[in-house]
Structure formats: structure tokens, C-alpha cells
Design a protein around this nucleic acid. Sequence first.
DNA 1: GAGTGGTCTAGACCACGCA
DNA 2: GCGTGGTCTAGACCACTCG
Lengths: 247, 247
Amino acid sequence: MTAPGWTNDMAAFAPGSVPRYEAVKQFIRSRIESGEWPANHRIPSENDIVADLGVSRMTANRALRELASEGAITRVQGVGSFVAAHKGSTALLEVRNIADEIRERGHRHTSRLTLLEEEPASPEIGDALGVPTGARVFHSIMVHCEDEVPIQIEDRFVNPTVCPSYMAQDFSAITPNAYLTLVAPITRTEQIVEAVSPKPWECKLLAIGRNEPCLMIRRRTWSETASVTTARLLYPGTRYRLEGVSQ
Amino acid sequence: MTAPGWTNDMAAFAPGSVPRYEAVKQFIRSRIESGEWPANHRIPSENDIVADLGVSRMTANRALRELASEGAITRVQGVGSFVAAHKGSTALLEVRNIADEIRERGHRHTSRLTLLEEEPASPEIGDALGVPTGARVFHSIMVHCEDEVPIQIEDRFVNPTVCPSYMAQDFSAITPNAYLTLVAPITRTEQIVEAVSPKPWECKLLAIGRNEPCLMIRRRTWSETASVTTARLLYPGTRYRLEGVSQ
DNA sequence: GAGTGGTCTAGACCACGCA
DNA sequence: GCGTGGTCTAGACCACTCG
């Protein structure tokens, strides 16, 4: 279903140093990146590739399947394969567990529990946790330090239905994050990152000035269909940043 | 190389509704998640799976290969496959192209070019672009608006070796990001997200107050081995946030 | 019914790490 | 030399879409 002569350079597909499925992937990627095959353009079928590039169908299939899982193309059974509309230009940032992150930098992680209580859910919190307004929920506030310097305020609400044992934990031994992950494996995470001005009580806990900008991550996590916890993580802008590499 | 009897339930691996490679993946995943196979535990080899689960080696290979690409296991040629140490607890944030993002919200994207010139690289910029200090580099500053409201300052330096035609573009028609992606396909992106206080000239361009915190993304991108561009993207904290869902 | 992708097999050759 | 993963093939059956 492709115009004849869509390739006239097949040398790279002979057995050699680079795997043949990889050569096929590169061949298709280069057509997409050069603009020769624009978004939604139909890609040669597996059988076209078999015939034109001289590889087996399993090899063609692997190349297309991997391109699809990478988001470069979309495939529809019975129809064909097409250049994905979305394009690249998206990159990913990894958001990690604060305690692991500090330890991996070779520093010491300590934390201080500022509040641990059971309280009625506000409308916002009830909504975030999927419980009625006024229902009892657990609330903890901690400060995490890297080599004794405050680096994060963790203001967290927990759904007691999912984790009834939350209040009984020793959070100097295990972080709320780690404990909740043990009790209810995370299946979904929603995160929002913003720059905000800290409130006076937050400045005090973080030992920063009134006008110092902070990074705020609001995180909600689910286990299966149940909402487990919602947290506000506040970092001083001068002491913390998110880093990420995509390849 | 596995203790005999590591499975006594093979019914699920007969041809059926769920693909056999998927059944094999689930089988292994469940052993890992239950803790039966802890971190670094050796996983049955492809040949073990062929013998014990009654699938072909290609099917066993696909199951293990996909588990490896998902990060659940690690594989070493000539040695074996092992449960990955890493574990979950990391989540991802997607950082998108500003123009696409605005358009997908159904709003109008406009931009204004504030500066476009060739200048000698400072030590920092030279380092970021992989060119000597003092070498000529391209420098552009733009303001991106969503429905006429300023939402991002894009302060960008470009390596002229990789993209010599940069200065000749009409950036009201194509964003620098989109143009650079066309000219030099991105193979690597490094990003750093911080909360910062804006400088006076930035407040003016964004039409915000002096003490309003801003989200700053510093982004460097590579094409193959060449550093293409480095950019500072500055967003008013009240008008922009990064959102992401991981599943 | 023809074309598409989705899966699966049996067998093969190779590069690698280790004893 | 043996077991490991890495790749590749030729051929097969299936489910799906569309004319």
C-alpha cells in the first residue's frame, strides 16, 4: 500500500553489527523525523517491510511493536500502522522518594514529626481521598532534613479505610511514603508541581525568609481503585530542584 | 538452575484468551510482588521457562525482554536474569511543548520575539553548548502567551554549528522548539525544575509583581552527541503548573 | 475475501561470562 | 565447554477491518 520505491537503500539491513530490527526502527524513525512521513501518514505494513527490506516478519513486527510502545507510531489491527500525531518534544521528570534521594547523595536523612492526629475531612481533603466531608481521616505533618537542613515539609492526609494502622507507626523509623507503599501498593500517582510563596508557619519550619519562593508538589496516590493518600510537599527553592534526563 | 517444582500450576499457559507471553509475565510478576522472589533473586532462564511452562523460547524471550524494559528485572548476557533492586516509588512528570499545550487546552497561543542576536558565549553558556567561551552563539528571548496573557519567558541559546539557519526563521510561525526539533532530532533531554524569584525585567515581561514566585525549567537538549540548545523557561507560579499521572 | 496486525513455534547461529 | 541472553527466520493460525 506504499508507493513503489519507498526505499532504494537496503544495504543496512543485511546481517551486521547493528541488530536488524534496530536498523528497521532507525529507517522508519528517520523518515518520520525528516518530515517525509508526516503525522498520520500510513507506514509500510509488516509484509511490505518483509518484501522490501529483506527481513523476516517477526523482525518487522518487533521493530513496529517497539516503535509503537515508544509512542512514535500507532497501530490498529486490521487497518495499519500510522505516524503518531503527538510527536516528540515531551520529556519526563522523575519524582523520587525524598529519603532515598538524600541517602543516594551520600547525606543523612532525618525527619521530625510535627503533627499526627485524626480529624474530620474538609471538603477538599474528602474530595481528594474519596471520603465524605467530615469523615475521620489521618493527618500528619513532618519536616525532612538533609544533614540537619530542612528540605521538605510533608503535609499528608491518609484514608483510614485503606491504612487503618497509620497512626500507630514510628515515623522516625519508616517514612509515611515507604509505609503506605508497603501497606497498599501504588497503582496510580497524580502530581502537580507549582511555584508558591510559603505561609509564615512554613517559613518557620523550613527556616527560610518570608519571600523565598518554594516548589510545591501535590501528590495523590491510588491503590487499585481506592484513593490512599494526598500530600503537599513543600521545598525551599534555594535548596531543592527536580532533575531529569530523558533519552 | 532453579529448584525443581518452582511451578505446579501450568494451566494458564495453554493457548487461550490471554497471550502466552503475557501469562508468563504475570506469573513472574506475581512471584516478585508476593516477595517469593526478592530483589536480586535469580529468575528462571529462558530455557527453564520453555521446559517448565511449555512455551517456545521466542515467547519466553519476549516475556523477559518486556519485563526488563519495564524495569521489573535486569538481564545480563551470559549470566542470567534477576529481580531488579530498584522498586517502584518513582513517578514521572511529563514536560510538554508550551504551544501544543496551550492549543490542546483550546486556547490561543501567541508569542512575541524580544531579542534575536548573535553573541559571544559566556563561560556557562559555552559549557552548556559544548563550545569554547567567546565562540559566537545564537540567542533568542521570547514571551509566550495564552489568550494574550504572558505565561512563559523562553530565553534560549543555540549552537550555530548544529543549526546555522536559526537566525533566519520566522518565530511567529514556528516556535524555536519546533524548529530545532525539525532540524536536529532530539536524542537526549536534561531538565531541571526550580522555584525562583524573577528578576525585574522578567517581572515586566510577564506582567507580574516583584515577589511572585516563578517556576523555572532549565532544559538542555542533544542530537546524537552534539549539544543543540540550552533554554531557561520561566513561568509565573500563579498561572502555570506541571501536571502528571503515572500508572 | 483480502489485507492488516497479534501471536506462536521450532530451530538456528551468535556473543558473552564463567568455571 | 556449557549455559546464558540476543537475534533471526519461515511458516503458521488467528482476530480484526473494510470494501
